[in-house]
Every structure is written in structure tokens, then in C-alpha cells.
Amino acid sequence: MNQPIVMAENVSKAFGEVQALDDVSLEFEPGIIYGLLGPNGAGKTTLIRVLTTLLRPDTGTVRVAGIDVLHDPTTARTRLGLAGQFAAVDDYLTGRENVEMIGRLYMLSAAEAKRRTAEVLERIHLVDSADRPVRTYSGGMRRRLDLAASMVGRPQILFLDEPTTGIDPGNRIDIWDLIIDMVAEGTSILLTTQYLDEADQLAARIGVIDHGKLISEGTPEQLKDKLGGAVVEMAVSDDMVQTTIDVLSRIGEGEPTFEKASKRIHVPAPDGSRTLVEAVRRLDAAGITPDDIVLRKPTLDDAFLALTGHAPEGDEGEEQSGNGRRGRRRPAGSAS
């Protein structure tokens, strides 16, 4: 059996009154991406800080790459790489100088650090700007440089704390590609995210964390099974609501529901776009033209509703989905 690359057992950490981590146990095998999903303040960063030797837990044991982190942090540090939530790069140094410095601090010789830096800069497509000061870089470039710095010491496991938060969509895809490449080459990765689709796209295993507790674990498929898939959402004029619900009855697995607050009809769509096409066909046949109609994939909000019965309470979670409340779905049957 493979030795787990990360193994945390019964890890708890309190900051005063706040229980940041509450008896968290988690492990996964090498060579995969593990996605830790949760809203702001759920405990994702605290767990990463414990796993990367930055923070001692109150109780529990932690092994990373086979090393007991609490007893031998120095050895553990030679095997792990960390990219935090903010790009921890120096503005007044060039990209190359930044990465080379971290390489030296990873105990590489000067020559080795130089060689390895050239390698990772090529990997992140920053060769052309490598000798410019970082203060001239864009946000996406800084984040990529930060990733390069975390890889320069050839760690067996990378910890990436919200690697795409605050990054525009184009750069987000770049970073995803980079992460996928690294895993293909044998690096294991634990990443945290607030986006369900990111965990879904990248991770082989997903852990959902809320209020310091790991509330669900499994493959993306297992998680989505629990969520019940996508939803077709539409708005129709008030007098057409009942007719529409009748027309769309028994289209998917559950019945359509009308949500009074948003004045929208929700139809579970287990077959995704096929359900949408079928819904449009039926509506058209009945002579109903909705004001708008969309296929919506489950969001982190939905995951939390399904798993915990409450919406995520992260203090900044709302701002991620813009008008977050609009898209929130109630579990089937509870619509009033």
C-alpha cells in the first residue's frame, strides 16, 4: 500500500474562543490533487499552516511525505512547498532573483539553484520577463512566479492556498494548466479553494471543510451525487407560474419548485443540458416563453446547503459570486 503523502489525525487548533480546526483527520495518496473546499474562515488556511510547519496544533499528529511534522519540521520543510494566499515575492527583485533566492534557502547549491530557477521560469512561461523587477509584473504573473518559487526546491508535495483567488479568468486557466502539469510529473498537491468548479476540475479527491470540521470527503463524483447535479432556472410572468410547473412536471428526478423571493422556477437537471433542451421543447409546445432561462451547475453554496443545511457563512464568501444570494438554491421540497 502507498504511504500517504499527507496524513493528519485528529488535528485541533483553537485561537482563544474560536475553534479553527475541530478534530480534523485527512489523508491521501501521492500523485494526486486533493482539493480542500470551503468558504472563508472555514479553517482551510489554518489547516495548511499546520501541515506546512507554520503552526503547531493543540492536539493531533501530522505526517507529510512520511515525516512527522511536529517532531522533525526541518526535514519536512525540505519536502514541501508552500504558495500562500498572497504572492510572497519581492517587488524590487527580478523574477529570477526571487526564485533563485528561495532555491538557495532550500539548501540547493548556487549552481543548482541557478539551473533549477531557469527550469521553473521556463515552466511558468516567464523567461522573457525573468530579469525585470517584479513590481512591473501583472497580478497573474506574480502568482505564477510565486508558484515557481514554491516548486524550485523539488518538493514532493505542494500546498497551494487559494491559488486562483483574485485572478482573472485567463490567468486562472494558466494556473490550472500549470497545476495539472506538475501532478503529471509526480508532484502531489493539496490546494484550497472556494470554488466548487475548481475543485471539480482539478482534484481527484475533495474534502469539504466548514467551521473547522471536515464535513464530507470523496471523489468529485461522490460529492456531486450528494448535491444532485445541475438546475434549470427560469423566470416567467406571474400568471404563467402554475402552468409552467405543470408543463415541466416529471422532467427530471424531482419536481419543479417556485421560489417566491426570487420569483424563479427551479427544475432539477440531472442530465444537464439535455434537461434544458427538453424543458425548452416542452415550454415551446405549450406556448410559454420564459423571460430568461439558464442551466446552473451546483455552486459551493449548493454544496453547503446539501451537506450542512445552511449556506456558507464566510465573511467574504459573498463577494466571490458577485450577487451571491441570487443563485442560491433551496433543497427540493423546502421551497415555500
Binding site: 510547519t53 507554520l54 526541518t74 520543510r77 508552500l82 500562500g84 534557502l105 532550500y106
Partner: peptide
């Protein structure tokens, strides 16, 4: 930056 330094050997 200090977090990164503290995560290094």
C-alpha cells in the same frame, strides 16, 4: 514573505 521563509528548511 515570513510565512514562506518559515516553511523553508
Amino acid at each position: 514573505v515570513i510565512d514562506r521563509f518559515r516553511s523553508l528548511p
